[in-house]
Design a protein around this nucleic acid. Structure first.
Length: 647
RNA sequence: GCUGCUGUAGCUCAGUGGUAGAGCACUCCCUUGGUAAGGGAGAGGUCCAGGGUUCGAGUCCCUGCAGCAGCACCA
């Protein structure tokens, strides 16, 4: 006699076990038509599942957020059926729903290409139109293995073999086709709808392990209706329009070339942007009690052996060797700054009175990243970290964490980001240090988060090899997430490199090292910043802040005078006195995303005024020269400096 | 690193085994104009590199390099 509680609180009683389909039908024909699946005591289930006990029930309809995942998962099944129908001999493996869509991994000797998509999509639409019901069956394990092996589906057979004994082997049929699947599914293939599209084809390792064979993955996107699909496709276009590689080229910020793969040639405008951010960061660090240092790029391998990097990351380090009659020395370009900072800390006796000691460096690091990892200026082999190490006592971990999070929040806000999330990455499989010290450092970091009021989600097993870390994830203007900041608790490196200080008790103690960065690397962060603003930077960050454009050549001397006044006020200004019409000049500099154009013609030259036009705006403002210079100089000040002058 | 795709002028891209193309950008000339493209002329090429097939290769094949997408990696 199940009693079923609906979301509005009403309770319906049934004489015996009843399916979700029957419950929906007993409530009303509208719901019977709309219900795709159900949530029973919070568990998403097929409508066909029998309800035997008292439970809270909620029906999932197409409008429900939960429907999206089901549409995508079902679409993956439809894709698999379509592919096996069109390309016999292709083995199926797995096909989950993912953010924005789904994929399915196939094993086939021939690769798929996007040219195959129209045929596959057409077949998928036929399958959807046929609306075969999804039918769940439970099979004995051995039977299932034998079935898939007989069909040559060795990946499926392997999956079943590796399922825990306790797991029920469930099979979902859709018409003639079937697949091993945990479920749940909607009523039938028709519920997938038509708002899907195959997107790309790519290789992917079987079970995500690079030692396994590579499968062919087909990605698709799927939505509840055509409007959502269009919005998603539009968002992808927007992301492409903002691509930092494209904007970097269009605005002449930087380039990369074969002779220095994975390293950036910063052009004058790009370097101005870089410098503006670096100067801002330097001021932020100074305000927050950091001492800036500079350490060598090329360091003897002995130090990397001592730190453990040689053992763990040798193949990802750039190694240099020198030879003379006496000896051969092997050095490596530093892949990180920490061991060098420890050398400064170790130089001379340190007192507890000096702690916490915050040592910062804009540290140029080099890592031989795998070729496939390189991406524009976001993932490179030569980069500069806004790195710092805080040498402190265990008791200082919490207050230093709080202080760091406050600094990071201010920096992100100043640089134009609304908010960030925090992830807590705990001990990885491959790690240094014993479990007791991991217990201690993880507990310390948890406590620090509590004291600092930091809420986080867990990112299990993703810590650094020497300690747990907090990861700070930015969300950009079009909703993409970027991990930039980090704070890591390290008790291993001070031990390995023998860092110590003299305590109040006049005995030697090990400091804790907090590794921390806010931007991560300048290269990556500037790439993110470019995409965040789509190249339309606020005035203080813009690499060219003002263009003074003439209408007639008679205004040229005046235009140069105005540009000079702006330059002396510290603004990045260009004069455009070219033999072009003002329309063309406006267009050129607007495409270059220059925030302010000052137009000067005969009238302005005579009245000593400028006509100021903002990027994207249609109207203009007539100002006196001095007035314009003063206003722009004020507006172009970095946010921290503006707060300073306002205070 | 792995799978697939791509590499032609500064940029975006055409190019059928038979003399290397367009638009934009660039230079010069005309034009002196009022807020997103004025007109004309000119210059610009190791067709990624090396090897092979062929009477003949930008085009076909092989190797390498680089880029793109994804996977794996990311101290």
């Amino acid at each position: 006699m199940p009693a079923i509680t609906l979301p509005d609180g009403t309770v319906r009683r049934y004489d015996g076990p009843v399916t979700g389909t029957a419950v929906a039908a007993s409530i009303g024909p509208g719901l019977a038509k709309a219900a795709l699946a159900m949530e029973l005591d919070g568990r998403l289930l097929d409508l066909g599942t029998e309800i035997t006990d008292d439970a809270a029930l909620r029906f999932v309809t197409r409008r429900d957020e939960a429907a999206l995942g089901m549409i995508r998962h079902d679409a993956a099944h439809v894709l698999a059926e379509a592919v096996q129908g069109l390309y016999p001999g292709t083995q199926v493996t797995i096909g989950p729903a993912i953010e924005n869509g789904f994929y399915y991994d196939f094993a086939r000797n021939e690769p798929f290409t996007p040219d195959d998509f129209p045929a596959i999509e057409a077949r998928m639409r036929e399958i959807v139109a046929a609306n075969a019901p999804f039918q769940r069956e439970e099979w004995p394990r051995e039977e299932a293995i034998a079935f898939f092996e007989a069909r040559g589906e060795r990946y499926k057979a392997e999956l079943i073999r590796d399922l825990p004994e306790s797991e029920t082997i469930s099979i979902y049929r859709q018409g003639e086709w079937l697949d091993l699947c945990r479920g749940p599914h909607m009523r039938g293939t028709g519920d997938v709808g038509t708002a899907f599209k195959l997107m790309k084809v790519a290789g992917a390792y079987w079970r995500g392990d690079h030692r396994n064979p590579m499968l062919t993955r087909i990605y698709g996107t799927a939505w509840r209706d055509a409007k959502e699909l269009d919005a998603h496709l539009h968002q992808l276009e927007e992301a492409e329009r903002r691509d930092h590689r494209r904007i970097g080229r269009e605005m002449d910020l930087f380039h990369v070339q074969e002779e220095a793969t994975g390293q950036v040639f910063w052009h004058p405008k790009g370097w101005r942007l870089y410098s503006t951010v670096q100067e801002y960061m330097r001021r932020a660090q100074n305000r927050n009690g950091y001492q800036e240092v500079r350490t060598p790029l090329l360091v003897d391998r002995a130090l990397w052996e001592a730190s453990g990097h040689w053992e763990n990351y040798r193949e990802h380090m750039f190694v240099a060797s020198v030879e003379d009659e006496q000896e051969r020395r092997v050095l490596a370009l530093k892949p990180m700054n920490c061991p060098c900072h420890v050398q400064i800390f170790r130089h001379g006796l340190r007192s507890y009175r000096e702690l916490p000691l915050r040592m910062a460096e804009f540290g140029a690091c080099h890592r031989y990243e795998p070729s496939g990892a390189l991406h524009g200026i976001m993932r490179v082999r030569g980069f500069v970290q806004d790195d710092a190490h805080i040498f402190c006592t265990e008791a200082q971990i919490a207050p230093e964490t709080a202080r760091f999070v406050a600094m990071l929040a201010e920096v992100y806000r100043d640089l134009g980001f609304d908010g960030f999330r925090v992830k807590f990455a705990d001990r990885p499989d491959n790690r240094a240090g014993d479990d007791a010290s991991w217990d201690k450092s993880e507990a310390a970091l948890v406590e620090a988060c509590r004291l600092a009021g930091v809420e986080y989600e867990l990112n299990p097993g993703e810590g650094a090899f020497y300690g747990p870390k907090l990861e700070f994830v930015l969300r950009d203007a079009i909703g993409r997430d970027w991990q930039c900041g980090t704070l890591q608790v390290d008790t291993v490196l001070p031990e390995r490199l023998d860092a110590s200080y003299v305590g109040e008790d006049s005995a030697r103690h090990r400091p804790v090292m907090l590794h921390r960065a806010i931007l991560g690397s300048f290269e990556r962060f500037l790439g993110i910043l470019i995409e965040q603003f789509a190249g339309r930077f606020p005035l203080w960050l813009a690499p060219v802040q003002v263009v003074v454009a003439t209408i007639v050549s008679d205004a040229e001397p005046y235009a140069l005078e105005v540009a000079d006044a702006l330059r002396r006020a510290g603004l990045a200004v260009q004069a455009d006195t070219a033999n072009e019409k003002i329309n063309a000049k406006i267009r050129t500099h607007s495409l270059q995303r220059v925030p302010v154009i000052l137009v000067v013609g005969r009238k302005e030259a005579e009245a000593r005024t400028v006509a100021m036009r903002r990027l994207g705006g249609a109207d203009q403002e007539l100002l006196g020269v001095q007035e314009a210079v003063a206003a722009l100089a004020l507006e172009a000040a970095a946010p921290d400096l503006r707060r300073g002058t306002a205070a």
